[in-house]
């Protein structure tokens, strides 16, 4: 069985995998980082979004072997080591950007990728960027609001409370 090694949330990680082992399986089953969720397993829902070399990818649609040598960041890598939440996570809490929370890890990782590319996105740009992240609870309004707030923009006129 081949071995794969990569950096996950700044720490070296390696393990035995099969050819068909998905990155999300390696992250959850080998590393025990279960914050990355598997919603649909068909690359539709985005609950499994992580960053590979700084880019948002669906961890259910990339093989672990393809992340050999990569820098991977998961939701567990977002908060500070002392537990202080990342500004995007804090904004999700402040603006009620989650209900059941299942989609939240993917939403936060997608939001972080968006803000890295576009630090002050418009509401329309946020909605467009979240096309591949599905939430079945919130109706998206507060997610969009949280991401706008995390980008330091005024959210008083955004969508509904």
């Amino acid at each position: 069985m081949p071995e794969v090694s990569m950096t996950v949330n700044g720490k070296p990680a390696k393990g035995q995998i099969e050819g068909r082992t998905l990155l999300v399986e390696f992250i959850r089953d080998n590393l025990g980082l279960t914050g990355t969720h598997v919603g649909c397993d068909t690359s539709q829902c985005g609950a499994c979004v992580v960053h590979v070399d700084g880019r948002a990818v669906k961890a259910c649609t990339i093989f672990a072997a393809e992340a050999e040598g990569a820098e991977v960041k998961t939701i567990e890598g977002m908060a500070e080591p002392d537990g202080t939440m990342h500004p995007i996570q804090a904004a999700f809490q402040d603006h009620h950007g989650l209900q059941c929370g299942f989609c939240t890890p993917g939403m936060v990782m997608s939001a972080a990728a968006l803000l890295a590319e576009n630090p002050t996105p418009t509401e329309a740009e946020i909605r467009d960027y979240l096309e591949g992240n599905i939430c079945r609870c919130t109706g998206y309004h507060n997610i969009v609001k949280a991401i706008m707030a995390a980008s330091g923009q005024d959210v008083s006129r955004v969508a509904a409370e």
Partner: peptide, 9 residues
Amino acid sequence: IGDPAVRNR
């Protein structure tokens, strides 16, 4: 094409 995560791969 697709969505941002799909376009990255």
